[in-house]
């Protein structure tokens, strides 16, 4: 009977573990958010984190979105020239970038860069007792380390994506005019012809959510890390993987919420 039940039991345990983990992350996030309205406020820390997450990720996000815009234009051209629908290319580029690829690719890139850095820094602070030291110096570690990073993630990602949107369109424009021989004015006209505010705003909202998730995963895994250098390494990996998976999953859910009606 045990042999029959053991896979079921294993499944049960796995589900239990996952649920426990989700609960723990949820409580962690709530506890960090509970500091939003209670002083002291660490403005300086928020500013620093915005620089860390946003400004220093600018090159990699810029590169990613620029090339994405270029490739999209090329792909759309090879696909649609068969149907003589060249005017659609500009729309395809701008809608794909603003609604979908800008936030998702920026999110994944920042998860790999800033999310990993947050987890590594926080994990090192944990295993070298720096987090404990904060408590002994009248400072709440959640409030000092986690809350500012969550705020910074929510602010920095939309800013990055806004820049990425522009660069993505620019990439498409460059390929369309320089390589495919389109007229530049027509291309820009086609770009904005069907673009609605919602398309851009929904992408920026997605970006905010992803920024929150990246900072949350970095902080959570860093905070809970133990066992020296190896533990910090494991925390970093978990932070990047969990943030990436959550970004992809939430992207689907958010897209459904925004555009299903």
């Amino acid at each position: 009977m045990n042999a029959v039940l053991s896979p079921v039991a294993a499944l049960g345990r796995a589900v239990q573990n996952v649920l426990g983990l989700i609960g723990e992350v949820f409580i962690f996030a709530l506890s960090a958010l509970s500091h939003l309205l209670r002083p002291p406020f660490y403005w300086r820390r928020i500013g620093r984190s915005v620089m860390e997450i946003g400004y220093f990720s600018l090159p990699v996000v810029a590169l990613t979105t620029l090339f994405t815009g270029m490739v999209l234009a090329l792909q759309a051209y090879t696909g649609f020239s068969r149907f003589n629908a060249q005017s659609a290319i500009a729309s395809i580029v701008v809608l794909s970038v603003t609604r979908e690829l800008g936030p998702v690719l920026a999110g994944l890139m920042v998860a790999g860069r800033a999310g990993a850095a947050i987890a590594a820094e926080m994990g090192t602070m944990r295993v070298t007792d720096q987090i404990d030291a904060l408590s002994t110096l009248s400072t709440n570690p959640m409030k000092y380390l986690v809350t500012p990073r969550l705020i910074a993630g929510v602010i920095a990602l939309p800013l990055l994506v806004a820049v990425g949107d522009i660069l993505g369109v620019m990439g498409g424009y460059l390929v369309a005019t320089l390589k495919l021989g389109f007229n530049g004015t027509d291309y820009l006209h086609n770009t904005f012809q069907y673009l609605r505010t919602d398309d851009v705003v929904s992408g920026l909202i997605k970006a905010s959510v992803f920024g929150f998730i990246i900072a949350l995963m970095g902080c959570y895994h860093g905070f809970k890390s133990k066992g020296g250098a190896q533990g910090v390494g494991a925390a970093t990996t978990s932070a990047v993987v969990s943030a990436s998976v959550l970004i992809l999953g939430l992207d689907y859910l958010l897209t459904q919420v925004f555009f299903s009606s």
Partner: peptide, 27 residues
């Protein structure tokens, strides 16, 4: 209670002076 940790546990993202004055600044 003031605490001296086993390996110092200095905040490596802050300069020494800010480490020393950390508790006073926090309060």
């Amino acid at each position: 209670i003031g605490m001296l940790f086993q390996n110092g546990a200095l905040f490596d993202s802050l300069p020494v002076w800010e480490n020393v004055a950390f508790g006073l600044l926090a309060q």
